[in-house]
């Protein structure tokens, strides 16, 4: 799951940075990422299974990465556009090139908003990832599915419940971890 989030973050950040200046590219990117999120997870897994021709870890990572895009892209765009234009102009005025400006000024200032996007994605993915085992991948859902498979046994409810609680717990832990991460990676000057 973390691998999916990592891939999604890198791709989402890059996409957000690429489109944030042009209004048309910006709305197109956000729309497409929004569409991805409406594909039901089972259908997505099936689709990727067919597309990649393999079961197991790879399609799960790709699916998770795709699902994580919307919050990350949207927050990257919002964060970058929220940077004070006077600060950007000053950076331009001291002779920072476009790339350097982005990396050393705009991105650090947009950072709290970007990480919030990643955090939302992480929590979102926990639920989606639970279904990973359906296509032979890893995932917390294994417990739930074991429970479902032995639905008639007295253990079934316990297994499913444990799996579900586990998913919720992981979600909460991740959320907390990201809050801490945001705090330690944000400059004291913008907190």
């Amino acid at each position: 799951m973390l691998a999916g989030l990592l891939v999604g973050s890198v791709v989402g950040l890059a996409l957000g940075m690429a489109v944030h200046r042009t209004p048309r590219a910006r709305s197109a990117a956000v729309h497409v990422c929004g569409l991805i999120l409406t594909v039901p997870s089972l259908a997505m897994y099936a689709l990727l299974l067919a597309l990649l021709g393999t079961i197991g870890t790879l399609p799960v990572i790709v699916a998770l990465a795709l699902y994580s895009l919307l919050p990350i892209v949207r927050n990257t765009v919002t964060g970058l556009n929220g940077v004070d234009p006077a600060v950007v102009e000053a950076a331009q005025g001291v002779g920072m090139g476009r790339w350097r400006r982005l990396v050393s000024i705009e991105l650090p200032l947009a950072w709290p908003v970007v990480v919030t996007g990643v955090r939302v994605s992480a929590v979102l993915l926990v639920g989606v990832a639970a279904l990973g085992p359906i296509i032979g991948g890893p995932g917390l859902g294994e417990l739930i599915f074991s429970g479902l498979r032995v639905i008639t046994s007295p253990n079934a409810v316990n297994l499913a419940l444990m799996g579900t609680l586990g998913v919720v717990l992981v979600g909460m832990l991740l959320d907390g971890a990201f809050l801490v991460l945001t705090r330690v990676t944000t400059s004291r000057g913008v907190r």
């Binding site: 004070d84 331009q92 001291v94 200032l109």
Partner: peptide, 19 residues
């Protein structure tokens, strides 16, 4: 960019880098 490093620039909103 090279030109601007030879020219100091001060604006009303100052535009210090807050971070």
């Amino acid at each position: 960019d090279h030109l601007r490093r030879r020219i100091g620039y001060v604006i009303q909103q100052v535009g210090l880098f807050p971070h």
